[in-house]
Design a protein around this nucleic acid. Structure first.
Lengths: 214, 214
DNA sequence: TATTTAATTGAACATTGTTCAATTATGTGC
DNA sequence: GCACATAATTGAACAATGTTCAATTAAATA
């Protein structure tokens, strides 16, 4: 069968991507195999390779979609909120909530990159993918700028640090490492982190007297 | 050839483990294949399976060793230091430094666990492995307790948070995500984090006036 | 209707982890 | 020393990966 009119090329590529995303979301990166995907969409393995150079390229597109969803998820959560610390918290909550609601997909995005070029050199990420990562950073940075009146020169490194901490909280909570050592709600950890790290930036909004906030 | 006296069983198991560790350290988890390991130690693939149920069990032992090295590395760094904030910093520095000096091995430890039991259920980590993870946590907790006079009830959640943040800083720096968004030295990020998050606990030791420390 | 075009196939190859009957080096008993 | 027993080691074989590409065949075109 060739050029069957079941799907246009665009439709078929979309079908491959969406099915792949579904498989990753359900069974993780390792659950996505060329043969399983092919049979899921009723095509043969070879067809996939007409649209993606290799499985890694497909996974990259899946991860690219996931990053988009993460971005949207966070933006929708914080959009209606007034500029205040609570908005920064909401953004942080959204980040970990998304990871918990989309465990496998999220892991696939942040798993140590397998993108190796047959030698040991790992290939750089394509520009459009880098841009999407940067979008997430900008979301954090601009939220800090907006909510806490941080000058850009301060908001930038603060956003990097905040992202990193958020990321670590998410990872260690997701994989259960923190459970071994006396549980912790990620939201509570975020409260602790923001309440203290950002202490100096908390102006009016009912700021308690100095001291550890729980 | 059977029962060749090249190595006693203990020696052979040690040889397998150390060669596997070397391969992981050099080429990452994916660089460790049964056949490559077998030929590296001049045995056949089957022999490995006399000592490890499967490759995952071997990798777990490799990771267990890596965690031990991480622990030792940090302890040696902070051992001589007097109890003060600088000791907490040194511990944090050591954590990321180790990750940078042992990238592949460290990634193997903290990669999303592949330990799945053929179904979707991921097996729990063996107790001795959990204990070694807990050791790292205790090292952080006791350092906070010792250096900043934190009561245990405070040091415990603080140590979890600090670990998570450290971990995130390490991950996002290692995989280059932060580079895409305006570099940052992990040590500088740690300074920022500790200097502000722990601000309230900084007593004498030349504490600057309140405000963001860089 | 015949011919061209190109999309799709699926068998084939290399490389994984893993198993296990066959092999063979060592230890034991005579 | 020799024969036998023991068990460590082997490596061919199996299933499942990703990936390729000549052959096939449906659709477009003449």
């Amino acid at each position: 069968m060739a050029r069957r009119k079941d799907h246009t090329p665009q439709q078929l590529k979309a079908l491959i991507l969406s099915s792949a995303s579904a498989m990753v979301a359900l069974h993780g990166r390792d659950g996505l195999t060329a043969r399983a995907l092919a049979s899921a969409i009723n095509y043969s393995p070879g067809t996939i390779y007409n649209f993606y150079q290799d499985m890694d390229a497909l996974i990259l597109d899946v991860n690219y979609e996931t990053l988009g969803h993460l971005h949207d998820f966070c933006r929708l959560r914080i959009a209606p909120l007034p500029p205040a610390l609570a908005k920064v918290s909401a953004l942080a909550y959204a980040y970990v909530d998304f990871a918990f609601l989309n465990t496998r997909a999220w892991e696939s995005v942040f798993a140590p990159a397998r993108r190796s070029d047959s030698d040991d050199q790992s290939m750089p990420l394509p520009q459009y993918y880098q841009d999407r990562l940067a979008e997430i950073f900008f979301m954090i940075e601009s939220t800090l700028h907006e909510c806490l009146a941080m000058p850009v020169a301060v908001a930038q490194p603060a956003a990097r640090l905040l992202w990193a901490c958020l990321h670590g909280i998410t990872v260690l909570t997701l994989n259960g490492t923190l459970d071994l050592v006396g549980v912790d709600e990620p939201h509570a950890m975020i409260d602790d982190l923001l309440g203290n790290y950002l202490a100096q930036y908390l102006g009016g909004e009912g700021s308690e007297p100095p001291g550890r906030r729980i």
